[in-house]
């Protein structure tokens, strides 16, 4: 059911407007080595609590955001544009 995700460009919007990609990890350098790449492509920490994820505001501004979500409560505390210096807090 309806839960809202804050978008730094559009304000709070229902999650149906967004697409989640997964953990917000930095892409390794091309020559970082197999271990670093396997880590990036396959391995996830799965912490209980605070977690940062990439979400795309697909039916909105079409910007990629880093969304802070609590994996235990699903509560979203805020988001920021993946590159532009803009962020938003949850209602």
């Amino acid at each position: 059911m309806a839960s809202l995700i804050p978008c730094p460009h559009c304000g709070s919007r229902p999650k149906e407007e967004f697409t989640v990609k997964g953990a917000a990890l930095a892409r390794p350098a091309p020559d970082a080595g197999t271990a670093a790449w396997i880590d990036y492509v396959y391995l996830r920490d799965n912490p209980r609590g605070a977690y940062e994820e990439y979400w795309h505001h697909t039916s909105g501004c079409r910007r990629w955001l880093v969304v802070s979500r609590n994996t235990a409560t699903h509560e979203i505390s805020g988001s920021r544009d993946v590159v532009l210096k803009l962020s938003a807090e949850a209602l």
């Binding site: 407007e17 039916s59 079409r62």
Partner: peptide
Amino acid sequence: SAMTLMGHIS
């Protein structure tokens, strides 16, 4: 202006 979902359509 705003971009949004109207029903299932952007």
